[in-house]
Design a protein around this nucleic acid. Structure first.
Lengths: 117, 117
DNA sequence: CAGTATCCTTGAAGATACTG
DNA sequence: CAGTATCTTCAAGGATACTG
């Protein structure tokens, strides 16, 4: 019996398993991946309006996602003392976790997998 | 003006942009990432019951996600002539797109980012 | 510009029950 | 085991309107 690899792994790594489940749950929220993706494509921070445009998210939803991302420490807010005042969002170091995700997606978009005609 | 990189990129890559938006939308569905993750952790295919257990998804929801993944050609079904008859799901080559995603997540789970106490 | 506050609506998840 | 069919519920998304 060298079969039940997955179940075994889960049992022995229950903590990791739960962390992942939770992250997965957060990432599953509507527009979450879109926001992250937009942020990943931008160079060094994007403003609210830019994120709104790129993620195609409603103001309300965008605010929600941004708040959640801040709460899990994935992004940080930075108020700019420009005229007019603006706000920039950028990744924290935790971004390293998401980097491969975003790169994978970008790759997908550019390559063209042709799953249909 | 060397600033509007994101907007520019999007304009010039509208097709890629739309492909990505659509993939993002599909991936955002509940339990989708969980299912993919479970599948990614398994060795060479998992059965319905295993996926159900690992993804913590309801039968109904699991069926829905599995169907959607088949439709976009991301996974394939394989009926086994065992006793009792079983079914195995496994990634197609399109899996390469998702691989970095899953690996990133696994890394996250194991490392422990400590965003809170 | 960068949000916040409401309300409304609906998509979609999930429980249950049943089938080949 | 591996689903399918219904039905109910409810979270959550999005439209609108307003603010510092």
């Amino acid at each position: 019996m060298g079969e039940p690899t997955l179940a075994e792994w889960e049992a022995k790594n229950e903590i990791a398993f739960q962390r992942i489940q939770e992250l997965l749950r957060v990432l599953s929220k509507s527009k979450m991946l879109h926001v992250l993706y937009a942020l990943g494509m931008g160079k060094g921070g994007l403003r609210f309006s830019e994120l709104k445009k790129s993620s195609l998210a409603d103001s309300t939803t965008l605010t929600r996602r941004l708040t959640e991302l801040e709460e899990i420490g994935m992004i940080a807010r930075k108020e700019l003392s420009t005229t007019p005042p603006a706000v920039e969002y950028h990744f924290t170091e935790s971004y390293d976790i998401l980097k491969p995700i975003l790169e994978g997606l970008l790759h997908y978009g550019l390559e063209g997998v042709n799953t249909q005609s």
